[in-house]
Amino acid sequence: MQAKNKNQATDADVPTFIEALEDPQQKQDSLALLTMMEEITAEPARMWGPGIIGFGRYHYRYESGREGDFMRVGFSPRKGKLALYIIPGFEPFSAILQKLGKHSTGKSCLYIKSLSAVDQQALKELLHASVLEMERRYPRQ
Rank of each mutant, 00 (worst) to 15 (best):
P50H: 09
F55R: 02
S130P: 04
L115V: 07
A32G: 03
S108N: 11
F55V: 04
P15D: 12
A45D: 08
Q2N: 09
M134H: 05
Q98A: 06
S104M: 07
I96F: 03
A20K: 15
S130K: 01
D119K: 01
A9I: 09
G65E: 13
I86R: 01
R57L: 10
F93N: 02
T105C: 08
F17W: 12
Q141N: 14
M47K: 04
Q98I: 00
P50T: 08
G65I: 10
L84M: 12
M36K: 05
K27Q: 15
G54S: 09
D13Q: 12
G51A: 13
K6I: 09
M1S: 13
Y58P: 05
H128D: 08
P139M: 15
L110Q: 02
P50R: 08
E43N: 08
Y85K: 01
A32L: 08
P24C: 11
G68Q: 10
Q2H: 12
R61D: 11
Q28R: 14
A122R: 00
K6E: 09
Q120G: 00
V14I: 08
M71S: 03
K81P: 03
A122W: 00
K99C: 03
H128R: 09
A83K: 00
E38R: 13
A122S: 07
F55I: 06
L34P: 02
E135D: 15
Q8W: 07
L123V: 04
L21N: 07
Q25D: 13
V73M: 11
Y62T: 09
